[in-house]
């Protein structure tokens, strides 16, 4: 090794050999594990998922709207003071069935300026 002119600390190579010789025994200690240790990562994942579901459910229940303020909101929504943005309510009939009577029709026609003759024709029909 004369071609490189580098020294090492005294006793380094003896120490190095001792450390390297310990590799097999250190690897043995790492490898010998009980059979159920292989299941540990999957059990941890399942526990995390369960914790997320429970915590999420708890938070959603706690933050779900309720109380007098929410009741007032519902009333305002139904009286159309604030727009109803629920797609289902927009595209589907309401549960409350509102039947239009002939009187309602006549009133509407009179208000819109329809001639009386036409109105009586429709009513008689």
């Amino acid at each position: 090794m004369d071609r490189q002119h580098i020294r090492v600390p005294e006793g380094y190579f003896d120490d190095l050999q001792a450390r390297l010789s310990a590799i097999p025994s250190s690897q043995h200690a790492a490898v010998v594990r009980p059979w159920y240790s292989r299941l540990a990562p999957y059990a941890a994942m399942a526990a995390c998922m369960a914790a997320m579901v429970v915590a999420g459910n708890f938070i959603l229940r706690r933050t779900a709207p309720s109380g007098p303020a929410y009741d007032e909101y519902e009333t305002m929504l139904s009286s159309e003071l604030i727009p109803n943005t629920d797609p289902y309510a927009i595209y589907h009939d309401s549960d409350d069935v509102y039947e239009v009577s002939l009187e309602d029709v006549a009133e509407y026609l009179i208000a819109s300026g329809t001639k009386v003759d036409h109105i009586s024709f429709i009513i008689d029909e």
Binding site: Q4, I6, L16, Q17, I23, P24
Partner: peptide, 27 residues
């Protein structure tokens, strides 16, 4: 395997140290 490995450690640890040392220039 362990006997073979210890033989490799005995015969090559110093040689491999110098081989690596020439690349990385740090003990």
């Amino acid at each position: 395997l362990e006997r073979l490995f210890n033989g490799i450690v005995r015969d090559y640890s110093e040689r491999l140290y110098w081989h690596v040392r020439r690349f990385v220039h740090s003990h």
